[in-house]
Structures are given as C-alpha cells and as structure tokens.
Design a protein around this nucleic acid. Structure first.
Lengths: 162, 162
DNA sequence: CTACGGGTTCGAGCGCGCTCTAAGTCAAGC
DNA sequence: GCTTGACTTAGAGCGCGCTCGAACCCGTAG
C-alpha cells in the first residue's frame, strides 16, 4: 500500500503520515524499488490507536514515549501499561470536567429558554449575572487543562510563578 | 480590585487578562486615577464562565462571538442560546468519543494486565497486534477533533482537499 | 532620595501540531 | 516523446493561545 492509499484509509494526509514518520510516531516504512513507502495494512491498527490517544488529548511527546516503549519489546510492557493507566486517569477526569461543564451549560441555556418559544424577549436578569448560581466552584479550578508548556517542575501553571 | 488581585482570584495571569481584554474577551476595564485597571468582583463570574467554555474546547473566536452578543443586550439572547446549544452538542459528542476511547484503553490495559502482578513477562502477542480487536470502528472516524484551520467551507479536514 | 513592588503599553516569541511549497524522480498512458 | 500524477526530500510557514521582555510610570516605605 502506498502513502496515498494509506492516507485515504487512515484519514490522515500523506503530509501528516510523513511527518509522523519523521518524528518517530510511525516506524520508518519500507520502500519499494522506486524508493516509495510501501505499507502493510497492519499499520492502520497502530494509526487508529494513535488517533485514540490524540482524541483523548495525549500530547505527541507522550505518544512518542509509548511508541518507543513498544519498539523496546515485551520487557517494556509494565511501563506501557503504567503510561496508559496514567492517561486513562487523565481522560476520566477530563470526562468529569466536561460533564460538570455540561451542567453549567444546561443551566445557562435554561436561563435563555422560552425567548423564542414564547414571544417575549428580555427575561430580565439573564445578561450579566450569568445564571452561574448553579454552584460556587472555587475559582482557579477550571483547569482541566492538559498541555503545560516548558516541562520543568515550574508552577502548576496559574499566575506569577516568576 | 487591581489586575494582580484579579489574577490571583481568577487563576489567570495578569498577562493573560490583558490579552483577553485586548482581543475583546473581557470588557475594557475602567481605570483609576493612576490609569490602572480597576475591576469589579462581578468580572470573576464572566471569567469563570469563559473558563468553562475553554475547558470544553470552544475556540476563542467563538467565545468572542458570544461576548459580542452579550454586549449586544437582551435582543441577542436567542442567538446566544443557539450558540450555547450548538456548543453543548459538540461537548456531548466529545464526551461520547472520550468514553469510547476509554473502552479501548481499558482493553489495551487489560491486555497488559498481570505483567507485574504475576512474575512472568512476555504475555506473548500483546505487542504488535494491539488488542484493538475490541471493535472494528471505521478508520477515518477518530475525528472528535474540533479546531479546523482556515475557516472556509473547505474539506471536512481529511486529505487532499486541493 | 532611593528602592521596590506594583502597574502600563507594545510587540516579539514560543510550543504545539500540523500544512504546505519547491524542486525533483519515476512509470504509465496518449 | 510528452504529459500526468503520485511519489520523494528538506525546510519554511501557519493558526492557536498564550507568554514574555523592554521600557516606562507611580506611590509608598525606609
């Protein structure tokens, strides 16, 4: 299978596939006599899984770590497992955050309700008060925010860690 | 309340607060006689809500749209409502995708299970096959991928839209 | 008077994950 | 023989959302 076909089947672009290979997310593909990449269908399984990791917000550098472990053979399985377990926890808390936010959205939308159904606009206070009387929720906690920059053990992210 | 205090209370940095004001996400703050921003505590409610939108993956340009509508007064409530309803759908499908991925992760982790508990490594085929025999799942569908670049009505994102 | 700890503006820079261009090779079809 | 189209490489560029540096201003404490 050539790169174009793989692109079609995987939903990635050929550009992206080459990029993934360059950075090591995909193994270096074998070439045919024309020096073109020649893929085995099994790569699709791996790409599919990468897609899952990506969809769940795993940064590329972590996928890379996993890919490296995988390349390291069976001895690395415990590490791989731990990596995935940690990620699973992250995803679970992500889901929890989203569900939390969904409640807030529901409340907000309910505050706007009827503006169309009934004919009257101006449901008085729905503008600035933001019906977020739903729950206090400590400020500085809407942080289900993966992607910390500059890796170091710097501040957890808020404010003047300088 | 000055910007530093707001930063502390909101969890944003002062830099970010100014940035948000610059782009219009936050209303231009009133200044004291020293020309320094002076905030009312009510801004925290708005920042908190923005945090929710952000946590659920809404791009800034959409938050901006919402902020503009809000500034447009009660007449825009139906629009605001539609905007939030659309976003809520996006979030719901995001949650569904994540839960889907969680199942895959569970399966994968189960495939690695015991490598530590029992003493034997090398649970044979857990390496390249990737126990994603969990379910076929059409490739090209791991796309719970908000953030489309270059806005236009271009291709839905995959492959050579050129 | 001086230092310091805020604040201000403007604009450059960064990390991420692609995305695209340019210039070239090759094989098949007209 | 020539065009077409899919491929190759290296490397530049982009959109997003901040993040930071530089240079400056101000008010208060020592």
């Amino acid at each position: 299978m050539k790169i174009g076909e793989l692109a079609r089947q995987s939903g990635l672009t050929a550009h992206t596939i080459r990029y993934y290979e360059r950075i090591g997310l995909l193994p270096r593909a074998g070439r045919d006599r024309q020096r073109q990449r020649d893929y085995d269908a099994s790569i699709l399984t791996w790409i599919e899984f990468l897609g899952r990791l990506k969809a769940t917000g795993m940064p590329i550098r972590d996928m890379l770590r996993y890919a490296e472990l995988r390349a390291g053979g069976p001895a690395t399985e415990p590490d791989r497992r731990r990596l995935l377990e940690r990620h699973r926890e992250a995803v679970r808390s992500q889901v929890a955050t989203l569900q939390d936010c969904l409640l807030v959205l529901d409340g907000k939308i309910a505050g706007y309700a009827g503006n169309e159904i009934a004919g009257y606009a101006g449901n008085e206070r729905t503008d600035d008060h933001d019906s977020s009387d739903i729950e206090p929720i400590h400020p500085r906690e809407h942080d289900a925010d993966r992607r910390r920059h500059r890796s170091g053990p710097a501040g957890p992210r808020p404010a003047r860690a300088r």
